[in-house]
Amino acid sequence: MDKSTERLVQREGAAALLDRGVSVPLKDMRIPFRKKPMKLRVVMRRPRLGGLMRLARVYLSLGVTAEQMKKFTKEEEMAFLAAHGKEISRMIAYTLCRGWISRRLLVGVTAWVVRNWMAPEYLDAAMRRFIFLLGTDPFTSIIRSAGKMNPMKLRLSQKRKGS
């Protein structure tokens, strides 16, 4: 892995660990007697485990890998969006509705709002961004080193007392 890719992985991992999220514009609303439109934005964050499993289930039902999506031409992107638009909006809704109750009650409505109010280029970019963030490859070395550490083993400063 080259240095720039390693830095990118570290930056995305830190953003994911800090749960910062990605702010995505929904719609510009015109309000009377106001010059500039009001911009509605939502923040997509990494879903919790239940939402992540549901998101993964929807992603796997698409039948396409992230590498294949990178190689799409414009026509293939449009055909993919036409065939799987509802599933894509549902995946994005899982990143917006992270709680147990909101995931149960509001995912359908949120997916409809995303389909009808979000610009297609933001929809595509948001989906690609979160699919690449959901992988575990960059964290395998961290997981491996954490697995080697025994939390029950006495540390250096605890040899005499034991706790």
Rank of each mutant, 00 (worst) to 15 (best):
E12P: 00
F130C: 02
M118K: 10
L154D: 05
K153P: 00
R129Y: 07
I131E: 06
S89Q: 07
L55K: 13
K3W: 10
T73Y: 02
A56F: 08
A146N: 06
R155D: 12
E67Q: 09
V9Q: 12
P138D: 06
R129F: 05
V58F: 12
T136E: 05
A56S: 15
A111V: 09
G51F: 06
K71F: 00
L17C: 00
M91H: 01
V64N: 00
L81H: 09
L8C: 03
R54V: 06
H84C: 03
W100T: 12
R7Q: 06
R90W: 08
A119R: 14
A66I: 10
G51K: 06
A83Q: 12
P138Y: 07
K71P: 00
S61P: 03
T140N: 00
D19L: 04
K161A: 04
N150K: 05
S4H: 12
E75F: 10
M127Q: 04
R34M: 08
G51T: 07
G50L: 07
L18Q: 14
S23P: 08
R103K: 12
G21R: 10
M44H: 11
S163G: 08
I101C: 04
L133W: 13
N116G: 02
V107S: 09
E6F: 06
K27F: 06
A125Q: 08
A16D: 11
R160N: 02
G13I: 02
M118C: 14
F139H: 07
G50T: 12
S89R: 11
Q10S: 11
D19C: 03
P25L: 05
R48L: 05
W100E: 08
R144F: 00
R155G: 13
K86W: 11
G108K: 14
W100D: 07
V113T: 14
L49E: 08
M152V: 09
G162M: 01
N150P: 00
V24R: 15
R90V: 04
L18G: 10
E75A: 15
M149T: 14
K35T: 02
E77F: 06
E77V: 14
A66V: 12
E76D: 14
P37T: 02
K86R: 15
S141D: 06
K39H: 10
L8P: 00
I101G: 07
W117C: 13
L55S: 13
L105D: 13
T65Q: 02
E121D: 15
G21H: 09
S4Q: 15
L49K: 11
Y122D: 15
R20C: 04
S23D: 14
T73H: 04
E87V: 05
Y122P: 01
Q10L: 09
S157Q: 10
K39L: 07
R48E: 04
L154M: 10
P37E: 01
R160G: 00
M29T: 09
T5I: 07
V107P: 03
Y59T: 13
A126H: 01
E77Q: 15
K74V: 12
I142C: 02
F130P: 01
Y94I: 13
K39M: 08
M91E: 01
V9D: 10
R90C: 10
V58N: 10
Q68I: 01
R48F: 13
N150F: 01
N116M: 06
R7Y: 03
A15C: 03
E77N: 13
P32S: 11
